[in-house]
Amino acid sequence: MSLNQIYTQIITENSRSKEHKHDIDNPNIVHDGVNPSCGDEITLELRVKDGRIEDASFVGDGCAISQASASMMIDLIKGRSVEEARHLADIFIGMIKGTVTDPEQLDELEDSQAFENIRHMPARVKCAVLGWHTLDEALKEKEEQKKN
């Protein structure tokens, strides 16, 4: 596994970007995600209205891969419906696991396809999926609250 397949310009630039790293106004979903292997924690904040993600952000600390992945995820899901966001999370997590390989499906991830090579670095997989797992759990929890 060569480093230049992982620490690409798009990933390192996004890892340093503060564009989506802040609190948002009136979030109605706030969910913590933890990577137990390093203790890194992010908090995802979403404002969902009528099934659409109006605004989203994250706060927390983490490695370049987790930070870039979370930031690029927010780029992708902001303005989308909850169903679309969950669908994208499935594709992203599938890409990292190696179960989703169809180029057309991967294209839906836009820039986040840059993380495809992480699956060759098993120790860093958890970093790449931290944001997406947190999103998935946050939306699931919201759904269950609705049911109850």
Partner: peptide, 13 residues
């Protein structure tokens, strides 16, 4: 500015 996990991956190379 470098997270230890990134450092360890880069050193591993």
């Amino acid at each position: 500015d470098a997270h230890p996990h990134d450092v360890a991956s880069i050193l591993d190379a």
